[in-house]
Amino acid sequence: MFLATCDGGSFAAAARICNSDPSTVSKAIGRLEAQLGLTLFQRSTRQLRITQAGQRYADTVRKMIQDLTTCEDELKHLNDSPCGTLKINSAVCYGHLYLRPLLKAFCKQYPDIKLELEINDLHIDIIENDIDIALRTGFVKDSRLVARCVSPMDFLICASPEYLEAHGTPSHAEAFHEHSWIGFRIKETQQLQPIFLPDLDGVYGPFELTRSHITDDGEAMAHMCIDGLGFAQIPHFLAKQGLESGELVSIYPSFRPPHPDSGVFAIYPKREYLPAKVRVFIDFLIHSLAKMDESATHTWAEKWTPLIEFEHSGS
């Protein structure tokens, strides 16, 4: 209203510009003058004349509005264009085995996006730490966040060919008591991850089993299995390389936990206008996983041919 009064030369003109009325404009200018402790306009019955202080104030306000408009335009461009720094946080195993190999192609496709990659297994506050997107196995329920499932998490019972040759292949769950088993300790709870084994009909259930060896690192568990230290129940993204290279063998069909929090999730803050850099990264990740035969509802592990099939297979 102040700038409209400067440009229009009267409260009536300012009211027309601002779709208001002269009285409202006059009162607004009066409040502004009282707040500043300055007279911005000399008033008379015939004219309204801006003071020297008013003119200086008008020059400053006009520049501020110009700067604000420029800033808004730049921010809108940044939000609408895939550019700027994209801060990603990823779980360790998934980050090393699935995410990192994709980054070269992503950067080639979006050269104006600079990556800041954090890899750890800490469930940190992504809003407080200004993280654009996190990739997690399981997710923290937080109303401020969107958790989009990018794939289920399928588990495979694996061993090395050398171990099977030396110790034989168990035909059912009870037979595992005669074999070495590599257990996984969850860092946050310090509890051992449950083991799900098939019964004679191939129906999976939790099974009490003594672990011969224990680790809290997923990649170490996979490598210990490759090295022939025993069986391990391994997430599909950890088992993939070993199975494809022949260093691991999958004994039975894959097992998928029925819990809704089980899966791989892309987690990001709820926003009405999602920045383009986040949007294109999610699209790129989904497209890349599709090439690996993975989606929000299935993984390649479902089609992997195990060493032992069941006549009646569980989910």
Results as ranks from 00 to 15, higher is better:
L3W: 04
L3G: 02
L3E: 02
A4I: 01
C6T: 07
C6I: 13
D7C: 03
A12M: 02
A12F: 00
N19M: 10
N19H: 13
K27Y: 12
Q35H: 15
T45R: 07
L48W: 08
R49W: 09
G54P: 10
R56Q: 15
Y57F: 15
D59G: 12
V61E: 05
V61H: 10
R62V: 06
K63T: 11
M64A: 09
M64Y: 12
D67M: 04
T69A: 05
T69Y: 01
T69M: 03
C71E: 13
K76H: 10
L78Y: 11
S81M: 08
C83F: 04
C83P: 07
K87V: 05
S90V: 06
S90Y: 08
G95S: 11
L97I: 04
L99F: 09
R100D: 12
L102D: 09
L102H: 13
F106A: 03
C107Y: 04
K108I: 12
K108A: 15
Q109N: 08
Y110K: 08
P111S: 05
D112A: 14
K114E: 06
L115R: 05
E118F: 14
N120I: 07
D125E: 03
D125M: 06
I131F: 12
I131C: 13
I131A: 13
A134Y: 08
R136K: 08
G138K: 01
F139D: 00
F139K: 02
V146R: 13
A147F: 05
V150S: 12
D154E: 08
A159W: 00
A159M: 02
P161K: 08
L164I: 06
E165R: 13
S171N: 06
H172Y: 10
A175I: 04
H177K: 12
E178W: 09
E178T: 10
H179W: 07
S180K: 01
E188Q: 11
Q191P: 04
L192C: 03
I195L: 00
D199P: 08
D199C: 06
L200G: 07
D201M: 11
V203D: 15
Y204S: 06
G205Q: 05
P206H: 14
F207S: 09
T210F: 13
H213A: 10
H213N: 02
D216M: 12
D217W: 01
G218V: 11
M224K: 00
I226V: 08
G230Q: 02
I234E: 00
P235G: 03
A239S: 08
S245P: 01
L248N: 05
V249Y: 00
S250D: 01
Y252W: 10
Y252N: 03
P253Q: 00
P253H: 00
P257M: 05
P257G: 06
D261C: 07
F265S: 01
F265V: 15
A266T: 01
I267A: 09
R271E: 15
Y273W: 09
L274N: 11
L274Q: 15
P275K: 07
P275E: 05
R279M: 14
V280T: 07
D283S: 15
H287V: 13
S288W: 09
A290T: 13
E294F: 07
E294H: 10
H298V: 03
W300C: 05
E302W: 09
W304Q: 03
W304H: 07
T305H: 14
E309W: 07
F310I: 04
H312Q: 15
G314N: 07
